[in-house]
Simulated assay, not measured.
Amino acid sequence: MTFEEYVGSRGPALIRLARLLTGDDHRAEDLTQEVLARAYVHWRKISRADRPDVYVRRMLVNANNSWWRRRSSRELAVDTVVDRPQRGDLSGEVADRDQMWRLILGLPDRQRAVLVLRYYEDLDDATIAQILDCSPVTVRTHAMRAFANLRERCGIPAKNGSRP
């Protein structure tokens, strides 16, 4: 597969992944362009990999994490300030789309990446582990911590011994 064919077939999915990771359309397009520029230079090596898409997704996740580390401030401009979401459950009022994305964007990078890769990219734990360069057990741990964080931010008490 040529680089042009790859970008033609997988480009929109990469931009979607970047949007979910960054929460910003413009930053997502810049991030995807940056990653594809680096991938182009190394395309001969990437295309020989068993799963080039996993390799490029990993580049995208790593580039997003590097961008966050480089920022001097993680403050985001918002229209309104929300002290704490009202108590509720994730399937009810608190789960409206905008509120949920604010909660997801507030998660640590790895936890957010695991949720996005699992539930929006529909990848299994082994593939996510490959992309994030960790073990499948670590992927599951990040997912459990992400759900615990979301519950806490929504004011839902954790049940003793329960799993998300």
Rank of each mutant, 00 (worst) to 15 (best):
D133M: 11
A63D: 04
V41Y: 03
V35Q: 03
A95T: 01
Y119P: 02
S91I: 08
L17C: 09
I46E: 10
L105G: 01
C134Q: 04
D125C: 01
K45P: 00
Y119I: 00
D125N: 10
E121S: 12
A39C: 12
L36N: 01
A13H: 08
D98E: 14
V137E: 14
L117Y: 08
P85F: 14
V61D: 00
L107M: 10
H42W: 06
A28M: 03
R58E: 13
T80A: 15
P136N: 01
L76N: 08
W68E: 15
P52N: 09
A129N: 08
L115T: 09
P108L: 12
R112S: 02
L90P: 03
V41R: 11
A113M: 10
G88V: 00
D25T: 09
I131L: 05
V137R: 11
Y119V: 00
W101D: 12
R19E: 14
L60Q: 00
E93C: 00
V78C: 09
L36Q: 03
H42Q: 15
A13E: 12
T138K: 07
R102C: 02
P52Q: 07
V78M: 12
L21E: 00
H42K: 13
V35A: 03
D79Y: 00
R118C: 07
D125W: 01
Y120K: 07
Y40L: 12
V41S: 09
L105N: 04
S72D: 13
H142Q: 07
E75F: 13
D96L: 02
G11K: 10
M59F: 04
T127E: 06
A126F: 04
Q130G: 04
S91R: 06
D53P: 11
D109W: 08
R44A: 14
S73N: 14
H26K: 07
